[in-house]
Simulated scan of single mutants.
Amino acid sequence: MDRPEKIIVLDDEAELRNMLQRFLTGQGFEVRVVADSKRLDRYLLREPFDLLVLDLMMEPEDGLSVCRRLRAEGQTLPILMLTAKGDPVDKVVGLEMGADDYLAKPFLPRELVARIRALLRRQKMAAGEPTVTSNKVRFGDFCLDVGKQMLTRAGESVEIHSAQMLLLHALGSSPNRPVSRDNLIARTRGRDHDALDRSIDVQVLRLRQIVEDDPSKPRFIKTVWGVGYMLMADIEP
């Protein structure tokens, strides 16, 4: 059974904190609420969270400052910013500081949940979370054994450089789902940094030259504009 997604709420209004905790818990989330950034920092050091709901207007450290600081520290969890202001400038500034979405008070609880679920879906898609770990994926005459990191064509082993194999494995671990460029770079450079070119796009082109009949019109390794790449494949047990 999958664990409930964990959300932490930072808001200095006790009434709103309690309301959000009750409502979001009722929607199936595991929820922590804190009243100031110091408590938030302690929680983030202690356990991982899937999303932060962050109030903009707080003292002594406001939401913009918290957001900017977390991003500067390398914190990547999605941030949904809440504010009583309706000024579009505040929205732009919040997004520029690193927030992923923005919701003005007062808001409908259902809209908050819809935005949270959308951010969580986007995070999973961008992260390219593996959907298979030991299965085989087939595309055309090719078969990738995800667990063994082995590529065959019509049953015969295919010679492939380790850099392209790492890239194919990253795509094959999440077949038919977009994987972001940042995720592909992180998952391929870890073991073979020197073998990779400056751009992940160059590595994709080289991989296409191995598995595509016409690399300029790819059937299997598709470009997902604004996200990254996706391997179109059939999954076998």
Rank of each mutant, 00 (worst) to 15 (best):
D141K: 11
N183T: 15
V66Y: 00
V146A: 12
E5A: 10
V33R: 02
I116N: 00
A114N: 07
T25V: 09
L20V: 08
F220L: 06
S180C: 12
V158S: 08
P130N: 11
L51D: 01
H161Y: 05
L184Q: 03
L151I: 02
L108E: 14
L144D: 01
P237F: 10
V211N: 01
M58T: 07
D213N: 12
D87Y: 09
I235M: 12
L166T: 02
E159K: 13
M1W: 08
D55E: 06
L184D: 03
K38N: 13
L70R: 08
G128A: 11
D194E: 11
M150S: 12
M165E: 06
E5P: 01
S134D: 15
M230E: 10
K38G: 11
G94C: 05
R181D: 10
S157G: 02
K136S: 13
P48K: 13
L231A: 05
M232V: 14
I160E: 04
A118T: 10
I235K: 12
D41Q: 14
L95N: 03
L16M: 10
L77S: 02
I79K: 02
A127N: 15
V66D: 04
D87N: 14
T131R: 13
L95H: 00
K217G: 05
D87C: 07
G74F: 07
L151A: 05
E59R: 15
G94P: 05
R138L: 11
P215Q: 09
P218Y: 07
E96M: 09
R121Y: 13
Q27C: 14
D12I: 02
P130H: 10
E129M: 13
V137H: 04
L16R: 03
S65I: 11
C143G: 01
R206G: 06
P130T: 12
M165A: 03
K148V: 04
A126I: 07
L207C: 00
A84G: 10
F49Y: 15
Q21V: 11
R219P: 00
R189M: 09
S162I: 13
G94M: 02
P237I: 10
D2R: 12
A163C: 08
H161K: 08
R206M: 14
G128C: 06
G155W: 05
V53S: 01
A163W: 02
S134H: 14
Y229N: 02
R32V: 04
R138A: 06
I7D: 00
L120F: 11
I221M: 03
M232N: 08
Q123E: 13
A114D: 02
N183A: 15
M125R: 15
L51S: 00
C143V: 15
K6C: 12
I79L: 04
M58K: 12
V92W: 04
P215F: 05
G155E: 09
T131F: 10
V211Y: 02
R189L: 13
L120K: 05
T188H: 04
E47R: 14
K105T: 04
M150V: 14
T133N: 13
Y229Q: 02
G74A: 07
P109E: 08
L82A: 07
R189C: 10
Y102F: 14
D141E: 15
A84I: 06
E15G: 06
E73T: 08
D141R: 11
D201W: 01
G26D: 06
